[in-house]
């Protein structure tokens, strides 16, 4: 779509572009300065690089890990666990929200339980999970599910309940049943709520899978973190953290992309 812009409009667009560029440049500068300071403090001995590591040591460890082929395995394990926890947690939380929205009686009955479960630090259930599910991947995924499922139910149910009453009245006057009210109104009206929940759950699922790996695991980034701590290789700990940042950021960006595509319609 090519349009003839006025001179003032072009000026405005250029100004906006420059502003965007300035933001990105500053963002890059912040990162570079932070990394530079970190490296410098290690080189000049302001801090003990054995404890705080340094960008160059992280880089070296990263290269070693990649060359050894172990990094991919650990990354893949954690990512897979997180994705499984994310998908199951979101789907299950959504399903529970639908049931509680559908049946006002059940909603009233289970509201206090949901509130208590939400406040409960899910890590407290770790030992129980390991005994019930077993000390393997299943218990890690269970942890990720547990952490994301309750908040999903609460957020989605809130969205459902706050659906415009007047719109429900309109559908009822047309003779809609509860199923139709859900499919024609409540579900589409809450697509933005679902998208917001997905964003929250990226973080929740990562917390769950890494925590689960702390408790019981043979591989994964959480395992590597604990291992690094035990053998006092802080370079390894820092490297894992950086890799985790990258993975979580990537997953968030993917969800944000989905949201952008979907929210154009809602």
């Amino acid at each position: 779509m090519k349009k003839d812009f006025t001179r003032e409009h072009l000026l405005y667009l250029r100004k906006e572009k420059l502003r965007k560029l300035a933001v990105h440049l500053t963002q890059a500068a912040v990162l570079i300065v932070a990394l530079g300071f970190w490296e410098l403090s290690a080189q000049l001995g302001w801090s003990d690089s054995f404890i705080t590591s340094s960008p160059s040591r992280v880089w070296k460890t990263l290269v070693e890990l990649i060359a050894g082929g172990t990094l991919w395995r650990h990354m893949w394990t954690s990512t897979w666990e997180t994705l499984a926890g994310f998908a199951i947690g979101t789907a299950l939380g959504y399903a529970v929200a639908v049931i509680l929205w559908w049946n006002g009686f059940l909603k009233e009955v289970f509201e206090p339980y949901v509130v208590v479960l939400n406040s409960l630090p899910k890590i407290a259930l770790g030992p129980v999970i390991i005994i019930l599910v077993g000390a393997d991947k299943a218990s890690i995924i269970t942890m990720a599910v547990l952490i994301s499922v309750v908040i999903t139910t609460i957020t989605i149910l809130n969205g459902f309940v706050e659906t415009d009453k007047e719109k429900i009245l309109l559908l009822r006057s047309m003779g809609a049943n509860r199923f139709q009210i859900f499919t024609k109104l409540v579900a589409p009206a809450n697509v933005p709520t679902l998208m917001a929940t997905l964003k929250i759950n990226v973080g929740m699922a990562w917390i769950g899978s890494i925590m689960g790996e702390y408790l019981a695991s043979k591989e994964g980034l959480g395992y590597l973190l604990v291992y690094g701590k035990q053998v006092f290789r802080l370079d390894l700990v820092m490297t894992c953290t950086v890799v985790l940042c990258a993975l979580a950021g990537l997953m968030y960006a993917l969800v944000a992309l989905i949201e952008k595509t979907v929210s154009r319609r809602y």
């Binding site: 415009d164 007047e166 009245l169 309109l170 006057s173 024609k184 009206a189 319609r265 809602y266």
Partner: peptide, 15 residues
């Protein structure tokens, strides 16, 4: 006879 209900705000669905 069925009725048609028109409300205060148009209540058109944006999606």
């Amino acid at each position: 006879s069925h009725v048609g209900y028109m409300l205060q705000r148009d209540q058109l669905f944006e999606w």
